[in-house]
């Protein structure tokens, strides 16, 4: 199978797509942030601090989206042994961890004026913290082996176990937090949200998604170049 996963073709395709994706990400993030910071109205309860939401919520979505993407890539890698899927999983994990961290950091900043503390054991934030730990475990396992192939394989199994467990973890944390404290302030009840808040949110979310895509393409490309360098070194070693 690896003979057919032509890295040269992938690189050509990536080179063609990358400028558009990157430009799209910049434009969406620019417009989204402008709308979020200057156009959207302040919340009648939370005031200006509600604007953190336009970064916090899309990054939370992305943190979950990227983990699912890693799980899908892992399944493809395990079943069809497609090397590009391995690379996609490896490239995605640090980005997903970054989004999870951003969610936690903005959640903490938002929580300060709302709760008066930097950290509250709120259900959503706690789930995100666990997701962040899952990302760290995945990254550590990926890099724990001398043989990179083994790292790919082990991390892929872990990602699949993780994605099965995420709903269980989410449910158990919700169960636990409703037991111990009242509903959170960070509630976003989808349909009731005003359009003037929804649009900036969706545009920023799209920008984040494009940003992720651009970063993944770039990271896969650099992994391919590194692999080619190693192969050339090996060939040189054999020739001598």
């Amino acid at each position: 199978m690896h003979r057919f996963a032509n890295p040269a073709r992938f690189t050509r395709l990536a080179d063609r797509v990358l400028p558009f994706v990157a430009a799209g990400a910049l434009v969406c993030l620019g417009i989204g942030l402008y709308l979020a910071l200057f156009v959207a109205p302040p919340d009648y309860q939370q005031g200006e601090s509600v604007r953190i939401m336009y970064v916090h919520v899309p990054s939370a979505w992305m943190a979950m989206f990227v983990y699912v993407a890693i799980a899908v890539a892992s399944a493809v890698a395990l079943v069809w042994r497609h090397p590009l899927a391995d690379l996609a999983a490896k490239a995605s994990a640090p980005i997903g961890a970054g989004f999870a961290f951003l969610t936690l950091a903005t959640g903490s900043l938002w929580g300060r004026p709302m709760w008066g503390t930097w950290w509250e054991w709120d259900g959503r934030l706690t789930s995100m913290l666990i997701l962040f730990f899952l990302y760290l475990g995945h990254i550590a396992l990926m890099n724990a082996f001398e043989d990179q192939q083994r790292g790919y394989r082990a991390a892929a199994v872990l990602a699949l176990v993780g994605v099965i467990n995420i709903p269980i973890i989410k449910f158990s944390v919700d169960w636990w937090s409703t037991l111990h404290q009242p509903a959170s302030v960070l509630r976003l009840d989808g349909p009731t949200i005003h359009p003037s808040m929804l649009w900036p949110l969706l545009i920023t979310a799209l920008g984040f998604k494009l940003y992720y895509l651009a970063l993944v393409l770039l990271r896969i490309k650099s992994e391919l170049i590194a692999a080619r360098l190693r192969a050339l070194d090996l060939a040189k070693l054999k020739a001598t």
Partner: peptide, 10 residues
């Protein structure tokens, strides 16, 4: 016979 050189694959 020696395996194909890496360049041919990558």
């Amino acid at each position: 016979p020696p395996p194909p050189l890496p360049e041919l694959i990558w």
